[in-house]
Amino acid sequence: MATILVIDDEDSIRHLLKEILEKATHHVIEAKDGREGLTAYQNNRVDLVIMDILMPGTDGLEATLQLTREYMDAKVIAMTGAQGDRNFLDVAKLFGARRVFEKPFDLNKLVDAVKEELAR
């Protein structure tokens, strides 16, 4: 069982991911923005982070960069609902995200990506 931190300002996305990941026997910690997510990461042993890019306050790009700079083993999957603008996803990869998804995303593909990243 892995611990996965889900960071997203949309309650519905966080709750959906929590439900899906808990069915896959993972422990899920939720955070509603990058600042809260960074604190949760520092206070818990986290195996994987699933992070929204566009959030108020500390956004996902800033949080991804901070995580991957401070923690060499941080694994981040980034996602965004900014339709048609792959630039955010490309920047997230440059900042250390291992995988990126556009919302709405295929839940099965996301679960497969989680399995693959946890196996690395």
Rank of each mutant, 00 (worst) to 15 (best):
R86G: 14
M55N: 08
K75T: 11
V100R: 13
N108E: 15
E70L: 07
R86H: 08
V6W: 00
F95T: 06
E62N: 13
I77V: 08
A82D: 11
E10Y: 05
M72A: 14
D9H: 09
D112Y: 11
M72R: 14
A24W: 00
F101L: 12
A78C: 08
N87C: 11
R86Q: 12
M72Q: 13
R45Y: 05
K109S: 13
I7E: 00
L67N: 11
I20P: 01
I50N: 02
V91E: 04
E102F: 06
Q66C: 02
T80S: 10
V28A: 03
L67V: 05
F105N: 10
K109I: 07
R45C: 09
A31C: 08
T68G: 11
F95K: 15
A2V: 06
R35G: 05
T39C: 03
A63D: 01
V114G: 12
V114D: 08
T80C: 04
V100L: 10
D90N: 14
I13N: 02
L38E: 02
F95Q: 15
R69H: 15
L107E: 05
M55L: 13
V76G: 05
I29L: 14
V76S: 11
L38G: 02
A78K: 02
F105V: 15
G60H: 07
L38F: 05
Y41C: 05
G37N: 04
E19R: 07
H27V: 03
L107V: 12
I13L: 03
G60Y: 03
A40K: 14
M72H: 08
A40I: 06
L5T: 04
E22I: 01
T39P: 00
K103L: 12
D33G: 10
G57W: 07
K18C: 03
Q66A: 09
D90G: 10
A2I: 06
N43E: 13
V91G: 02
K23F: 06
G37H: 03
G96C: 09
R35A: 15
G81I: 02
D59I: 06
V100E: 05
K75W: 03
A63C: 08
K18Y: 00
